[in-house]
Design a binder for these strands. Structure first.
Lengths: 218, 218
DNA sequence: CACTCATGTGAAGTACAGTTCACACCGGAG
DNA sequence: CTCCGGTGTGAACTGTACTTCACATGAGTG
């Protein structure tokens, strides 16, 4: 995974350097820009994960910048710095997609907390988008497949017909269908002599399931 | 949930009472039978979760009993007690569906470990069968729904159109469709003024998801 | 009032997951 | 060899999840 990149777009030189210093000291990779215009140039080369943006700037203001930013980096998190916050201002910014606020002056730890929280959310959202998640959950959203997994987990390797009988499913091709599904998702394999068994990932899924079921049933 | 019931089918009076005493002392509810025949009578009234069964008994042997037992309680776990185990014996028993073995003489803790382990597996299998599991996983096996959940989780309550825009989905009826789905599964509700928010169960699901995604991505 | 935006419904269509069936192949028992 | 159980494939069918569209309602606003 690439390192997290944060853009700091702020016309006040001292404040900008100050923010950058704090972030770098905490292990974030940062890029400072004096204006929104220069930031736009840099977006393509190094898309940021998070942008810290001053509201009031010469040239293009923060508000105008946001839609352009979103266009090239739709998932980016935006933290806006405002000198003073009014309700109208906040509402307008939220509508544009600002994720968080810092009101000047802010403390070092306020900045860090805000940045960290937003990166957390970002990471979580990215995981939600992970196609692996899709596959995994689609795979598990079927009772027969879950039963196959749990059976293999408790009995170790089994041959096809033994499994079919154990599940009490009369149509063996149905079981075969789901086994193929599980195989194609690499949760189950067959060893040299045709016996089916869980892959390490399959076992992990079984763990997940037991976790889930405990979690669901309170 | 009903208390766990264990049948102890053993012709030797002392051994039977001994086993029962150990189990009762550990909080299990037990029923002792001297023969498989009497056990069959009792199956209907109090279906057991687990059966401890002597292999060699006068009258119907343990082996003959198993298919009959399975017929009325297909999910029951069977622990067989054998005086001496041969490979053939073990294989035959496994084919019939014996889940575990105890070789005489066994220690108190061997008995308890075996019983507990098999009850664990049983509980797990039952959870797999839980239709709630089906619903939950089907619900989550869709990326849009996961995104809705994660968005609501990070933003708190949101109104319909805000949510739709945030997800960058042009067709609002699509979002509505998934929201309805989430609502019908009680993961999401609407408060007095139409804003959507997570139910406690919805939040739990979000937890589950983040758990899962960490678990899946190693 | 006329207009727009937010919110929702219902019907029709599409895509895909899951089922079922007919059959094929192989290895071992009689 | 023939027959049978174990294992698997492919094609056709079914049903459900999802999408799309056309439209309805209601609240606010110029």
């Amino acid at each position: 995974m690439n390192k997290t990149t944060i853009f700091v777009i702020e016309d006040d030189h001292d404040l900008r350097e100050n923010i950058i210093e704090i972030l770098e000291a905490n292990g974030f990779s940062t890029i400072g820009c004096e204006t929104a215009e220069t930031a736009l140039q840099l977006l393509k080369e190094q898309p940021p994960d998070l942008v810290i943006l001053d509201n009031m700037m010469p040239g293009m203001g923060g508000m105008a910048f946001i839609p352009l930013l979103k266009k090239s980096c739709s998932t980016v998190k935006i933290v806006m710095i405002t000198a003073f916050s009014t309700v109208d201002n906040a509402v307008a910014a939220m509508k544009l997609g600002v994720n968080d606020y810092l009101t000047k002056p802010f403390r070092r730890d306020e900045l860090l907390v805000t940045v960290r929280r937003n990166l957390e959310v970002l990471k979580f959202e990215q995981q939600m988008d992970d196609p692996g998640m899709d596959d995994a959950l689609a795979c598990l959203s079927n009772q027969i497949r879950r039963n196959i997994l749990s059976t293999l987990s408790s009995k170790g390797k089994m041959r096809f017909m033994d499994l079919t009988r154990h599940l009490e499913i009369s149509d063996h091709t149905k079981v075969n269908f789901h086994l193929k599904n599980l195989k194609s998702h690499r949760l189950v394999t067959q060893d040299r002599e045709k016996a089916y068994c869980l892959t390490p990932q399959g076992e992990k899924m079984v763990d997940c399931l037991s976790l889930l079921s405990q979690h669901i049933s309170d």
